[in-house]
């Protein structure tokens, strides 16, 4: 039980050191532009990741403007055409413009990714903070719950949630929301442990003690002191989960539990027509595959770089 670790040492290097990081970062924060430049210089991979994420978000926001065609309308005679000026990425087996589908697909990936993180990280933070901060009976109960949660095979949870929900309401939004919710629920259990150990790491810090002595309420302490100080691990967790959710969506599609057609989810494009036609029309697999990989790559690189920057123990660690 990690609660019994001495000195609240976190099991994972990215967590316990966070409060100091925050404390050190705050006073000397440079102007945003310079900070960005500095970040890009020192962490080129992270910057590249950030750029990818930015492109992804912009694509998703302006999909209507960027995409030359609708994602669900194609002509049979146009099917399986290779990339050309008319169809930048070629067309799929139903004659639909692949570029437009990839562009619209970014919305689904973003929605699934952020949705999953909202649920996953949100729930993880809530449980982690309550469990870690209050300790005692709360902690004991929550941790037993988490034991069961972590032990529940994700695939069952995902399949059941998606199947049960699609028989009720099946608007495209619901279908995306359910996939996101399911993925979020899956990761929340394990992640709450990371948050909890971060909280354990700072719970007994002098400044928290001081706040408690001055009569601050628990809620205020959590809001004012705990939450800001665990922001770093939570942020890192979120970026990693984002990539993971996008990837998991594709596996769900492969298993037949994905977002419903004709929604152009990258995962279902790769798992469906991509796999079926990739010898005849390789672009059907290449583009969605590349899109998934780049998105996952982007979020993970950004997360890595954030960790390096926000964690002081890693910050100065270059060998001189």
């Amino acid at each position: 039980m990690r609660i019994e670790q001495q000195k609240g040492r976190a099991p994972n290097g990215l967590t316990a050191a966070a409060p100091q990081a925050r404390a050190r970062l705050q006073p000397e924060r440079p102007r945003p532009a310079r900070a960005l430049w500095h970040f890009a210089r020192r962490k080129p991979l992270g910057a590249a990741g950030g750029l990818l994420v930015l492109v992804l978000i912009i694509t998703a926001l302006f999909a209507d403007i960027i995409a030359p065609y609708a994602y669900d309308v194609g002509q049979g005679v146009e099917r399986l055409k290779g990339p050309s000026l008319r169809h930048l990425f070629g067309t799929d087996n139903l004659g639909r413009d692949l570029f437009s589908r990839i562009v619209y697909g970014s919305r689904i990936s973003i929605a699934v990714g952020f949705g999953a993180v909202l649920v996953g990280t949100g729930l993880a933070t809530l449980i982690g903070v309550v469990s870690g901060y209050f300790g005692g009976a709360f902690d004991l109960i929550f941790q037993r719950l988490i034991d069961a949660w972590v032990a529940f095979p994700a695939i069952i949870l995902l399949a059941c949630l998606v199947t049960i929900s699609t028989t009720r309401d099946t608007s495209p939004t619901t279908s995306i929301a359910i996939v996101a919710l399911a993925l979020g629920l899956v990761v929340a259990g394990g992640s709450s442990r990371v948050v909890r150990s971060a909280v354990l790491g700072i719970r007994d810090m002098p400044y928290i003690e001081a706040a408690r002595c001055t009569g601050c309420s628990d809620l205020r302490i959590i809001r004012r002191y705990i939450l800001p100080n665990i922001l770093a691990p939570v942020l890192i967790l979120a970026t990693v989960q984002l990539g993971g959710a996008i990837l998991a969506e594709s596996t769900l599609s492969f298993l037949g539990f994905g977002v419903k057609p004709p929604m152009p989810a990258w995962g279902s494009m790769l798992a469906g027509s991509g796999r079926q036609y990739f010898l005849v029309a390789p672009w059907l697999a290449i583009w969605p595959g590349l899109a998934i990989s780049l998105a996952v790559f982007g979020f993970n690189m950004l997360g890595d770089a954030l960790r390096d920057v926000l964690d002081p123990r890693l910050r100065g660690s270059q060998r001189k």
Partner: peptide
């Protein structure tokens, strides 16, 4: 370092079924 990490994430970023 960059190559190794990019490689690692690239591997992570390709779905197993693919």
């Amino acid at each position: 370092d960059y190559l190794a990490r990019s490689g690692a994430i690239a591997m992570l970023a390709i779905p197993g079924f693919w």
